[in-house]
Design a protein around this nucleic acid. Structure first.
Lengths: 148, 148
DNA sequence: GCCTAATCATTTGATATCTATCGTTCCTGA
DNA sequence: TCAGGAACGATAGATATCAAATGATTAGGC
């Protein structure tokens, strides 16, 4: 059983994802944002999150990492944090007007990026890509590492 | 023109890639390695690289980052670095026996990971996935950002 | 043959991320 | 009632990464 002759699919996946993320991040930087800031703004704007842990989960980062970003965003006047009076362990994170304004600008960037990414692909192809990616995800998320 | 109703494809791509990379890195760690170390060993073993810049390029990282990894690998006795007598700007990087031994172990891990990743996918599906990823890559690598 | 360009690697300084730990606040069961 | 544990977020310490500046060496132009 020789090693796979072609380039491993994981390598192609990692490199493509990095190139795409970097391109997106560069566009967001031009608009005054960054990838993590955009994901945080998006989650705050579109989901009702009870606490920072849920927010971190929605963004896909750890709580500690979220803390750093929220510190910076608070310093920059994008969000406010205050204790929930009903449960003083919980911090309520809210967008300021400046935060909402940045969200609007970054949303344009995100829409343009997505359009650019899909260029030349039919919606059936995009759907197929999504489905294949999901299957890779399932293959590694699987709790049974015994399968060789 | 509303934002795309479905989850942006870039987000699915980024999350899948992260999950896959993390799973692979965890396996490599069990075998005594890491993702960047594996890529460096693989490049050294399978390609004739003239200098560190080429090596960094093959691995897909910046020269500065490569320097850090080579420092650590040299400390751990996996590689040696010496000046090229013909061009004293160039460092020749070579695997030690311990480096070759680790390469062999990590290769097993990499083969198993690839097999796991492809589980349930036909080779036609994998080829289709590769081709779709390449098209995304081209879409962002494109030098013409005017296309919206 | 010199001075300037270019090339190669490293260092420096910054950001993003993780795991582990800590302090505070809340809740539950004896 | 109150002691122990759980939940929440912050902090500390570590690693990976990049861009920009620096140092050393070579190559080219005159």
């Amino acid at each position: 059983m020789p090693p796979p002759a072609s380039r491993p699919i994981g390598l192609t996946l990692a490199r493509t994802a990095r190139a795409v993320s970097r391109a997106f991040d560069a566009r967001l930087a031009e608009a005054g944002g960054s990838l993590p800031v955009w994901l945080i703004l998006l989650s705050l704007r579109t989901q009702a999150l009870g606490n920072q842990r849920e927010l971190a989960n929605a963004v896909g980062i750890q709580g500690a990492t979220l803390t750093h970003h929220l510190n910076a965003m608070e310093r920059n006047g994008l969000v406010t944090r205050r204790r929930d009076p009903a449960n003083r362990r919980v911090h309520l994170v809210e967008l300021t007007p400046a935060g909402k304004e940045l969200f609007g600008r970054l949303r344009e960037t995100a829409i343009a990026h997505d359009r650019r990414l899909r260029r030349g692909l039919t919606s059936a192809e995009v759907a197929s890509l999504e489905q294949l990616l999901d299957r890779l995800h399932v293959n590694v998320a699987d709790d049974d590492p015994a399968v060789t």
